Computed example of a mutant assay.
Amino acid sequence: MGESGLAIKKTYRVKRTKDFNQIFSAKHSYANRKFVIYKLNTKQPHFRVGLSVSKKLGHAVVRNRIKRLIRHAVAEFSSNLTKEDFVIIARAGVQELNFEEVKTNLKHVLKLSKIYVDGEND
C-alpha cells in the first residue's frame, strides 16, 4: 500500500457484516488495556482492517476521532502488517489518548497478535 496521504483504501477495509461475523467466529482474539483485536487468516493479497468503536466511548465526534487516529496508525504500520483480516475494537480510555499513545498501544496489541512484523523502519 502506498504512502499517499496515509489513507487506507476501501479494498483494505472490512465493511460487510458477514465479514465481521466471520472474523469474530474464528475466535482468535488478543487484547491489551486499550484495544482488542480479532483476526482471521485469509488468502487475500493484502491485509484488511475493520474498526469498532462503541457508543459508550462518546458521541459521534469522539468516535470518529478515535477511528481516524486508528486508521492513521494502521496506515503508518501498513508495510509491516501480515496479509490477514482483522478487526480492532477500541476499549474505554482510548478517547483520552493522543496519537502517539494510540500508536504505541495499537502496535503493542498488533505485535501480540503477530499481525505486526518488525521491519527496518521500527
Rank of each mutant, 00 (worst) to 15 (best):
H59I: 00
L69V: 00
T17S: 14
T17D: 12
K43N: 15
P45K: 11
F86E: 01
E84A: 12
I66F: 10
L6N: 12
D118F: 10
V109S: 07
K111D: 10
L6T: 02
S113N: 09
N80G: 08
A26M: 07
G119A: 09
G50D: 02
I89W: 03
D85C: 05
N80T: 14
I8C: 07
E101W: 02
L40N: 08
R71I: 05
K114I: 05
I23T: 05
S4Y: 15
L97H: 05
V14C: 08
T104N: 13
R68E: 04
L106A: 06
K10A: 10
A7F: 09
V87K: 03
V53L: 04
F77T: 01
V74K: 01
E3G: 13
G58V: 03
V53H: 03
F86L: 08
H28T: 14
A31T: 12
S25I: 00
V94S: 09
T82K: 14
D19K: 07
N121G: 09
S54D: 08
I66Q: 08
F35R: 05
K56C: 01
S113M: 08
S4V: 13
N64T: 02
V102T: 09
R71W: 02
N32P: 06
R16Q: 14
F77G: 01
K15P: 00
T17G: 09
G93C: 09
